[in-house]
Nucleic acid binder design. Structure first.
Lengths: 243, 243
DNA sequence: ATATTATTGTCTCATTTTGTGACATTAAAT
DNA sequence: ATTTAATGTCACAAAATGAGACAATAATAT
């Protein structure tokens, strides 16, 4: 959870109480899958970017609003994957610590100290065109490789795990228009992405045949300058209307 | 949404406001997939069985509580599949109609008239050992074949659609211990179940080979008396510990 | 008893998909 | 001009799946 307003706690009247969202924002730097994590100043606490849902706001829109605030991006690929409803999903001490580290006050019984049910989404974004924006209130934000995460607050590690599991399961079905790569990429880039997500090596020829077989790729000009060898083609994902 | 307490509306203090669950309870009668629907007396309104989450109750437990109330069953196979968060998910007129049809009063501004976010689950139960229990407050409950549903309130049709879609996608991965069949069943029974869920016919020999290949079935004695032909074996799903 | 009938369990072969390696091609470096 | 290393494509092997054939057999009819 994090707050966007300037040094003011989100107000009860404006939001649905007991309900939050958390987002696992995936990016790919060409080698590793990374996610965005907030770090709360002076607390050493790491957390997923999250937020609250306004009383008259679509759940999905709340998540998009948070993503826009953190990344500056619109039209992010977004997928809801699970809602976490443990009774233990409250962290009054943590919340208090964070708020006090920011030299703010929170009264006993404030809604932020309550138990929260959280709807979790994952997002896929192009690592290159994002300069993560830290909250003005309380945190810095940075990329962390998926297999080198710091320990996270509450059940956020479980959330990341489930996000990754879902991403893997959806890879073949739903990644057709992935935002994890730049608009044009080589077959090798795409293979590296798959390997990073799946955490296993793939066979080059089989992968290439499979990808070309799906008919979701458009072939473009060749990419020269890659080294002392045959130049690879560039590809992009077909969008509706492309040949 | 439906209420369990006797002729008393659920009280704000006890539940998390703005949050509900809905359950798509699947059963199989040997030929068709059916789901349980509530019908509100004197209103002609059909709805999914749902309910609210207590302030200190695990989300999953709230759903189990509702299922137990409606079916009398414990240990039901349950899978969360989506959380619906439209801003239009409020039905004050409908709620008012239902409550008034029960000769009860509801004040302006009652929490039940608010907008709700709903976490949706599907359940798989053995059609045979369930005698659905109607709410004391407001409804009758009955089985309806999945392709002959009456029109449902709010977005409940969308919820059913998504439940069925998820069930189909999960069929091979997660149906291993399905509760949709009696403890022992023939290969033909199992095939009929798959066909009913998928909505398509399957090839007998291929299906049988695939099922035996998964190694999740235990073969038992033969079932005699089925007709003028070779008697089929009975099978059950292996549970941990079975050979 | 015996023959008939319909469904089952299993096998075989065809087809499709996937795994695996080979090989000619080619852009840059030497 | 030659060397080097990755690419695109093909060819064959292995595995999975589609589709039918067929003997076995439990109840029914004769």
């Amino acid at each position: 959870m994090a707050f966007k307003e300037n040094k003011k706690l989100p107000h009860f009247e404006e939001y649905i109480p007991h309900l939050a969202y958390d987002s696992v924002i995936f990016g790919f730097n060409g080698r590793q899958i990374k996610i965005l994590l907030l770090e709360y100043h002076n607390t050493g606490l790491f957390a997923l970017p999250g937020g609250f849902v306004k009383r008259n706001e679509h759940l999905d829109d709340a998540v998009k609003r948070g993503l826009k605030g953190r990344t500056g991006l619109d039209n992010i690929y977004l997928e809801q994957f699970h809602t976490f409803g443990d009774t233990t999903r409250a962290a009054p001490e943590v919340m208090r610590t964070i708020i006090e580290a920011n030299k703010m006050e929170i009264e006993e019984g404030n809604w932020l100290l309550d138990r929260f049910i959280s709807v979790a989404y994952y997002a896929l974004i192009n690592y290159d065109d994002v300069h993560p924006i830290p909250d003005e209130l309380s945190d810095s934000i940075n990329w962390y490789a998926i297999d080198e995460l710091p320990s996270l607050m509450m059940d956020h590690e479980k959330i990341v795990e489930k996000a990754l599991k879902t991403l893997r399961e959806n890879l073949d079905k739903k990644l057709t228009g992935t935002n994890l790569l730049p608009p044009k990429f080589t077959m090798k880039d795409l293979q590296h992405l798959y390997e990073a997500i799946l955490g296993e090596e793939l066979r080059r020829t089989t992968f290439q045949r499979k990808m070309l077989g799906t008919n979701i790729l458009m072939r473009h000009e060749k990419l020269f300058g890659g080294g002392a060898h045959k130049a690879p083609y560039l590809y992009s994902f077909k969008t509706i209307g492309d040949g």
